[in-house]
C-alpha cells in the first residue's frame, strides 16, 4: 500500500519537475544566406555563387545581388565572363531599384566577355534611393561550350548615391559556372 503511494509521489514529482517545453534550437545554415557566404557588407555578389553543372545548350539565371547596401540611387555593374563558354541572352532588372510603381531605368551592353549593366532609380517625392539586400538585376545566359567559366565584377563596377557620390563596397563576391556536355 505504502509502496504504491510512494510510486505515485515519484510520478507526481516527475510530472512537476521534468516535463517542460522545448527551447527553440536552430542553425542558420542556409547555403544561400549571405551571412554564410563569407562576405563583408556592404558589397555585391552573384546568386547563386556557383552552378555545379549545366549542360551545354541549357539556359539559367544568375542574379546580381547587393548585400546591406545603403542609399544607392544608381549602379554600373561591369561583369567579366568567359564568352567562349557563356552567352548572355537577356538582362532584366531586379527589385532593388524599384521605387514603388516606378521601374528602374536600365540599359546594357556587352563586348569581348564584358557585360555592362547600368541601373538608375527613378526618384519620387518620398524616396530617392534604395537600401538593403536585394537583387539588382537578373542575367539569363546559355551555355555554349563545356568548361569552368568564372564570373566576376570588375573594378569599374560602382554604386552611386543620389548625389552621385560612389558608395564604398567591400570585396565583391565571385561566381563560377561549370558547363558540362
Amino acid at each position: 500500500m505504502l509502496k504504491s503511494h510512494k510510486n505515485l509521489l515519484y510520478f507526481i514529482f516527475v510530472l512537476i519537475f521534468l516535463l517542460s517545453c522545448d527551447d527553440a534550437k536552430y542553425e542558420l545554415d542556409n547555403e544561400f544566406d549571405p551571412e554564410n557566404l563569407g562576405l563583408n557588407s556592404p558589397t555585391i555578389f552573384f546568386h547563386p555563387p556557383e552552378f555545379e553543372s549545366i549542360k551545354v545548350g541549357e539556359s539559367d539565371t544568375l542574379e546580381l545581388y547587393c548585400y546591406k547596401v545603403q542609399n544607392a540611387a544608381g549602379a554600373h555593374l561591369q561583369i567579366e565572363f568567359d564568352s567562349e563558354i557563356i552567352q548572355i541572352d537577356t538582362v532584366k532588372y531586379g527589385d532593388f531599384f524599384m521605387n514603388g510603381v516606378n521601374t528602374p531605368i536600365m540599359f546594357t551592353d556587352q563586348e569581348d566577355g564584358f557585360l555592362n549593366v547600368y541601373l538608375f532609380l527613378q526618384p519620387t517625392t518620398v524616396a530617392s534611393n534604395s537600401s538593403g539586400t536585394m537583387s539588382m538585376a537578373k542575367i539569363l545566359f546559355t551555355v555554349k561550350d563545356e568548361g569552368l567559366a568564372p564570373i566576376r565584377y570588375t573594378n569599374n563596377t560602382v554604386l552611386r548615391s543620389e548625389n552621385n557620390t560612389s558608395i564604398f563596397l567591400n570585396s565583391y563576391g565571385e561566381g563560377l559556372i561549370n558547363a558540362v556536355q
Binding site: D22, F32, G132, T133
Partner: peptide, 26 residues
C-alpha cells in the same frame, strides 16, 4: 526552404527573436 538571399536576410532576425522569446517564456 527559401533560396532568395534578400528574404533569408529578413528571416534571420525574426528567427532569433522568436527563439529568444520561446527561451524567455520557457
Amino acid at each position: 526552404n527559401e533560396n532568395d538571399p534578400g528574404k533569408l536576410i529578413e528571416l534571420r532576425p525574426d528567427i532569433i527573436r522568436y527563439a529568444s522569446d520561446t527561451k524567455k517564456h520557457n
